[in-house]
Design a protein around this nucleic acid. Structure first.
Lengths: 187, 187
DNA sequence: CTTGAAATTAGTACCTGTTACTAATAGTAA
DNA sequence: TTACTATTAGTAACAGGTACTAATTTCAAG
């Protein structure tokens, strides 16, 4: 980036640059755009772009408060009732970032994760592992809806548990699945 | 938090507090623990906890660069081969945060997500939705392993696609699933 | 009670990446 | 040439620290 571009162009570039990488200091930006630090600051002011620390904080806060939809938490959805070894209920508030951008339809694995999650929660064992699952999605679900998952232990044989999970969205069943979970209590 | 606790106790609390909420300034911490700011700084020094800005930056960086294992990206795993409408291959590098803390066994939905993802990728249609999936997990997978998913379109009827997905970990099959995907090209 | 070490507090200089402001200079179009 | 915009320069102040020195408090053991 040697050339000096026009103000408008520079600001457009600046905006883009910072939106997909907010970690630049003003000083680093002076080298990139080959203008003085004052110009950069003026640009940020005009564009309403906050300072580095604010930008970084925003990124951090966004990803911190998020219930870590998947991966982090051991349970997907909010556990609202649990009878260990028998049954359990969980609620999952679906959000935009669980859906396909174009259609707003919730991606299947989120629903699956909620189901798997509640299925494992009801098992009265330290650690469980999904062995086999026979699942059926019934309706596409748009983001913004609350999903209520009900799990029931239907049978137990040795360290194998058979759990049925049904997920509803405003009375309508939208998912059902049969999970076979294997406890691995003693290694 | 009125009481003055022992040094050891305070440091334990401090560590915990900052690990699940890194956004406190030293000054805020003085109020929480009812000690001087110097003590807080000494504690952080002894515990090797960096300053607020560093902590925030770390959170931001972690969640920024991360391939957003699930949710963000439209594809889970790295697409390495694709013949649209026919077949596709993807690789997923499993990491610790996809696994259960205690056992290091990868959580089922990550595997499912990879499978669903590659299944949808091979479909020659703008948007697809998982209709029915009949899946089987075969072996527990420890984190750190590479999963290779192969998807194949076996049949197409109207806007319904039948896709088989197999996932392997070093030659061994660890998952198989049959997906029925419904394209929703024209609303 | 006294002494000595650990723990805590105080205080200062300095650092980064800024905001907020004032003022000078360069570029450009009428 | 003039008027106006864009850019640059420079300074004071701020938050949230680091790094260091030094004083003060606490508290248990002799």
């Amino acid at each position: 980036m040697k050339k000096r571009m026009s103000k408008a162009e520079r600001q457009k570039e600046l905006k883009k640059k910072l939106s997909n990488d907010p970690f630049f200091t003003d000083e680093e930006l002076t080298n990139i755009f080959n203008v003085s630090i004052q110009t950069i600051r003026l640009d940020r002011l005009e564009l309403g772009i906050p300072e580095l620390r604010e930008r970084v904080k925003n990124v951090a806060e966004k990803n911190h408060s998020k219930v870590r939809s998947l991966g982090g938490k051991e349970i997907v959805g909010e556990l609202i009732d649990l009878e260990l070894g028998k049954s359990g209920i969980s609620i999952l508030e679906t959000t935009e970032d669980m859906a396909f951008e174009k259609t707003n339809v919730i991606r299947g694995h989120h629903i699956f994760a909620q189901a798997e999650s509640i299925a494992m929660a009801v098992i009265d064992a330290e650690v469980a592992l999904t062995g086999v699952a026979n699942i059926k999605y019934q309706t596409p679900i748009k983001s913004g809806n609350k999903l209520i998952a009900k799990a029931e232990v239907v049978r137990q044989r040795g360290n194998k548990y058979f759990v049925h999970v049904f997920i509803y969205e405003s009375q309508k069943q939208v998912f059902r699945g049969k999970f076979i979970l294997v406890s691995m209590d003693k290694e």
